[in-house]
Design a protein around this nucleic acid. Structure first.
Lengths: 152, 152
DNA sequence: TTATACGTACAGTTTAAACTGAACAAACTT
DNA sequence: AAGTTTGTTCAGTTTAAACTGTACGTATAA
């Protein structure tokens, strides 16, 4: 019984570290893992209790996880409290959120840097900085190619 | 002149955001970009001046960048101060550091979770948690496959 | 309707990270 | 050798993030 708990605690601790790799804060990662290891949807009060944090804190954590599409709210008849649970097929969810974030960023930055390049070309013919701008654009292009090659 | 500077500042600002995507802190990313846009190696004092931060702060920043293999120290005869510069082919450097970090983490966590699984099997036959452990292992396996498929 | 239970917003506090200046140590200069 | 110059360590401070408790609004229950 307590032995099972130590195993669960270890799992929470270790798996959270992998979740953190997806650019998720340590506490949010821990919250996610707790929810994931619980086979039933959980209420804010339950999560607050397990996390040892205030309900407000858990509330904001859940909010960010929902925004990332990693947690969803579910309803169960007869239960008034909000219930939250993790989605199935973790891998797709995480990779989708992660790659989407990268692709989105690269797209925006490519445009931004192109715009700066325009300005530089107009005013500043033949300056050294132009080499760097071209390198930056190439850098983004390579990243883009790398992440687009990947499939879920 | 000042116009060129605003363009440079914009470049610093924008490119830093991409560097941050590689899990590098905003100030370290800015430091790297400043060094990258400077066509000459820089001293601590110069970087301190451009960053508007203390020399101590720049020193620690450079240290972490060197540890990540993104910056190296160079020597120039007649110059006493330490000189630092960014490496060529950014893309390879960053991807190598980044993918290496992922692969390393996944390897370690796979082993750790397997060890926990052993313990769980010994003591806790047929418990629900075992399903989750298998899912976790599969999760890591998929990530590993995804990152190994990638080439620089 | 009144009363109770729940989620969220907000101000204030705690905790952790980033940063600084002074002091030290090692290397160079004279 | 004594005197500078430079990088680094460390204690203390500033700044930003995480967290908490109270208070408010909304929904359910009586």
């Amino acid at each position: 019984m307590t032995l099972v708990d130590t195993i669960t605690n270890q799992l929470i601790h270790e798996f959270s570290k992998t979740i953190e790799m997806f650019d998720i804060s340590p506490t949010d990662a821990r919250l996610f893992t707790i929810l994931y290891l619980n086979h039933q949807p959980m209420t804010l009060d339950e999560m607050s209790q397990v996390m040892g944090k205030s309900k407000t804190s858990v509330n904001t954590g859940i909010r960010t996880l929902i925004d990332l599409n990693l947690v969803k709210q579910v309803w169960k008849k007869g239960v008034r409290k909000n219930l939250y649970t993790t989605d199935k097929n973790l891998y797709q969810r995480f990779m989708q959120a992660y790659l989407g974030k990268w692709r989105n960023h690269i797209n925006i930055q490519k445009q931004t840097i192109h715009a700066i390049q325009e300005k530089a070309n107009h005013r500043d013919q033949g300056h050294l900085i132009e080499n760097r701008i071209n390198e930056m654009i190439e850098f983004h292009r390579l990243i883009e190619a790398s992440f687009n090659k990947r499939r879920l």
